[in-house]
Write a protein that binds this DNA or RNA. Structure first.
Length: 424
DNA sequence: TGCTCCCGCCAACGC
DNA sequence: GCGTTGGCGGGAGCA
């Protein structure tokens, strides 16, 4: 039943598959769209600020915004049984964690909307997390935001709060990096970090210098499907399992050689398609894609940070997996993880190996590309599996007859992936 | 003490 | 040459 409704959703966004495969893989087209801004150059968000400069969560098109300025999450949806509503309900029902997150999200929006005249720097404090932690007084007794209050995750939440989760297919929401940075009171550099990760999930796409389009969550299931399949084709599951075994057995050795002592994954498990050396290939967007791929193919869906870092380092530069590279990769993974956590796709956990080993657990929808539709141990009712089935159907429908459903599993703009052979 | 990750330098890139 | 983009690592906050 739910699946049929999701199929209806697809009819609204035909061609999304092309978009996904395009921006995931087609560097050439990315280059072509440089400075070719196809939409209206204005950023509607600015006009939606309350006098104090607090961004108000958008729920629809700019026109409708003026008519219905109240936030969408606190009011009944105008289309309570729309396909997207069904999907959201499924997601929400599937996990208490996700329900908690929704509540926190509502609280965040509530605070942002209710607070009056907050200077940009103070906006940082208007979050659920910030409410629990006061800023640190400086030498003048002023409250300066704590480290947590300035975190990328929190910044990402505020960023996300500006745009509707499920924009109408017809509406084009522009994002001006300069404006967003100014309104959130941060440097543009930080916005790049967020946008890059969002771009890896197709939640936004770059249309010109400083300009992005907001796509929102409707295409997320499709994107996860594509990433999941690519992850499988790249042999990430085998790499991960192999590395996990190595890490488990060589903890002591690892401590001596700076944390990169494990042998690189066998060349057989590395696809030529992912060899990366250029600046672009090392971008946060690519790294984020691969990080997500790891989650989508991993079983269980918990990945230690060091394991992910090793795979991502060795993916591109097997010969230079030194300690500094490892540390840098870890830093970047933290950046990515913060954004993914804000999106509610992963959550931080610790695996019990010699105290607390940082790891992240996938709490988002199960990848639709996964054939098993595996039921989480924490999902005994199988609601996640239900969502997985819905997502899988959506994914397959979207890809039917389109290039991203090529038999070899490759996607448009990308060479057919090399068949990988797991190392013995 | 080690984990976490903010911050901003500066180089690659594109026009 | 200049503005944009974003890799990178120092170092400080935090548990």
């Amino acid at each position: 039943m739910e699946c049929l409704k999701l199929r209806d959703l697809l009819s609204l966004r035909k061609g999304k598959c092309d978009i996904a495969s395009h921006s995931l893989n087609d560097e050439v087209q990315n280059a072509q769209k440089e400075n070719r801004f196809r939409g209206s150059p204005r950023t509607p968000v600015k006009s939606e600020l309350v006098p104090g400069g607090v961004p108000r969560r958008k729920c629809c098109t700019p026109d409708r915004i003026q008519l219905t300025p109240s936030k969408p999450l606190d009011k009944p949806s105008p289309e309570p049984w729309s396909p997207t509503a069904n999907l959201r309900m499924l997601i929400s029902a599937a996990s208490p964690d996700i329900r908690d997150r929704e509540e926190k999200k509502k609280e965040l929006f509530r605070q942002i909307e209710n607070e009056k005249v907050p200077p940009a720097a103070d906006v940082i404090q208007l979050t659920a997390a910030a409410a629990a932690q006061e800023g640190v007084p400086d030498e003048f007794g002023h409250q300066r935001p704590s480290r947590k209050q300035k975190s990328l995750g929190l910044l990402c939440q505020k960023f996300l709060a500006r745009y509707p989760d499920y924009p109408l297919p017809t509406e084009k929401t522009d994002i001006s990096l300069d404006e967003v940075a100014a309104e959130l009171g941060v440097e543009r550099r930080r916005i790049y970090d967020i946008v890059n990760v969002l771009e890896s999930l197709q939640l936004v796409s770059r249309v010109a210098k400083n300009q992005y389009w907001w796509h929102g969550l409707p295409g997320l299931a499709l994107t996860l499907g594509v990433l999941g399949r690519r992850g499988e084709q790249l042999g990430y599951a085998q790499q991960l399992a192999q590395l996990q075994r190595q890490l488990d057995g060589k903890e002591e050795e690892e401590g001596r050689d700076g944390g990169t002592g494990s042998q690189p994954a066998s060349p057989n498990t590395r696809s030529k398609a992912v060899c990366m050396n250029s600046r672009k290939d090392k971008s946060l967007r690519i790294m984020s894609e691969k990080f997500v791929m790891l989650f989508l193919v991993a079983e269980p869906r918990t990945i230690a940070l060091d394991a992910a870092a090793k795979i991502l380092i060795e993916d591109g530069q097997p010969e230079s997996a030194d300690s500094s590279k490892f540390k840098t990769k870890i830093r970047r993974l933290y950046d990515i993880a913060n954004v993914l956590t804000s999106l509610g796709l992963i959550k931080k956990v610790h695996v019990n190996e010699r105290g607390r080993k940082p790891a992240f657990k996938w709490v988002g929808p199960v990848t639709p590309g996964r054939p098993d539709g595996a039921v989480d141990a924490e999902d005994p009712c199988g609601k996640m599996a239900q969502l997985a089935a819905a997502c899988r159907l959506q994914f397959e429908e979207d890809c039917k007859g389109s290039e991203c459903g090529r038999k070899d599993g490759s996607v448009r703009g990308e060479a057919a992936p090399v068949v990988v052979t797991p190392a013995t």
